[in-house]
Amino acid sequence: MLSVRGLNAAYGRAHILFDIALRASKGEVVVLLGRNGAGKSTTLKSIIGLLRPLSGEILMRERSVSRLKPYQIARLGLGYVPEERRIFTDLTVMENLEVGRQARREDAPYWTPTRLFELFPNLGRMQDRLGGRMSGGEQQMLTIARTLMGNPAAILLDEPSEGLAPVIVEQMALTIRALKQEGLTVLVSEQNLRFAHAVADRAYIIEKGHIRYSGTMSDLESNGAVREQYLSV
């Protein structure tokens, strides 16, 4: 569904990513693990086109998207949920969803506000509330719902558990599993290993802009040395 090869990226003159290679198959939940500043967010931003890569190939369903603009990539069925949530604070919940709305796609689940409110019952109860007047957990739900309105076949989730209360984190994990059930491909970046275990099928570990490890979650479970070296909190 989604594959990345030889991705290099920089902010100004600071080289951040070095030859990143990743892939995610249809219906798979893949986690990109790493610390603050390891390059997780930069990887996701490069994939969605917010940061123009120095080099490398990004393929969405075998089609190269590395030269496209973010809106074109989004319309090809790739959704992006940013770390800082970036809710439109002046817009209501319904208006936020409206901004995300795109045409129906044959190869991806079709979302309407009604269906989304089944997945996120809290949002259904505050349809006219301004984005700026929601709690962190509610905003996190809204930012995912807003992206789903684009009917994506795959989504990028940047640190969805960051700064959330434990109960909300649990809810978030359930949501991601539900999206997998719908057939969505999910690439999620995380620092929280427990959360990663709860949602992911496979993991990559990124450190200082290099992919250091890749394997299934159960392999990672049994590999204490890798966890210790790259992830010890």
Binding site: R35, A38, E207, K208
Partner: peptide, 12 residues
């Protein structure tokens, strides 16, 4: 000396 998360983003 006040240090707010002085080692965040550094290697172990």
């Amino acid at each position: 000396l006040l240090m707010d998360e002085p080692t965040a983003g550094m290697a172990p």
